[in-house]
Simulated assay, not measured.
Amino acid sequence: MEIKSLNIGLPKTQMFRQEQYMTGIDKKPIQRGWLSKNGFENDGVANTDFHGGPDRAVCFYVFEHYKDWEQEFNCVLPFPSFGENITVSGMDEKNICIGDIFQIGEAVIQIIQGRIPCATISKHNNIDVFLQRIIETCRTGYFARVLKEGMIANDSKIILLNEHPLKVSVKFTIETFFHCLEEERIKKILQVNELAEAMRNKFSKRLLKLKI
């Protein structure tokens, strides 16, 4: 597990086919940054429905996915093409679980939900089907809350402090959310107390609908 790129950026106005929109996706690599309970210093989000807040303070995206996307779309994707704060290797959605705790530099974070991507990724990379393909493949990345604030450098070590005993992977939650909305899968996810509140509410509402 290692950091490939550490990234921050404040929301700004961008253009997409003569459409103007505000977004925080256009982040830039940095050497070091202070991570607080609400995210990195000098970092921000525009769409608070999908990003930001203490439960989504840090956004991760998987380095290994870059090569897959570049091959599929025959393009070069610079870091961080997905607006992530930390581009990380060795931490795929299949092997990272909700509730897992990691130390990164001075900070300690806990994985709390898979990312629910939005159309901004397609606009930012000028690939119309990007959002659709991310949802189909479940290569979404994930969010973390901050348990201990501190400085993180782009060469900081990542140390697993605690693996959650229920072992509900990020990929399992994303697959359930988008593709396998089954009662038993949702119940398994809701057993994880550390799940982000917003995501818990979404799953709880869907479970209620299944029971009606």
Results as ranks from 00 to 15, higher is better:
M1A: 12
I3R: 04
L10H: 05
T13M: 10
Q18R: 11
Q18T: 11
E19Q: 14
K27V: 07
Q31E: 15
Q31T: 10
L35Y: 02
K37D: 13
K37C: 12
F40T: 04
F40D: 03
G44Y: 01
A46S: 10
N47S: 11
D49H: 15
D49Q: 14
H51Y: 14
H51S: 06
G53M: 07
V58D: 00
V62D: 00
H65R: 07
Y66M: 03
Y66E: 00
E70V: 02
L77V: 12
S81R: 03
F82T: 03
G83S: 11
I86V: 06
I86C: 10
T87Q: 00
M91T: 00
I96W: 03
D100V: 08
I104E: 04
I104T: 00
G105P: 00
I116H: 03
P117T: 10
A119V: 11
K123F: 06
N125V: 07
I127R: 02
V129E: 13
L131I: 09
L131S: 08
C138P: 05
V146N: 04
L147Q: 07
E149I: 01
I152W: 07
I152F: 11
N162F: 12
E163F: 03
L166N: 05
V168S: 01
S169Q: 01
K171E: 12
I174V: 13
T176R: 00
T176E: 02
F177S: 06
L181W: 07
E184K: 15
K188S: 11
Q191T: 09
N201S: 14
K205H: 09
K205T: 05
R206G: 04
R206D: 08
L210G: 06
L210Y: 04
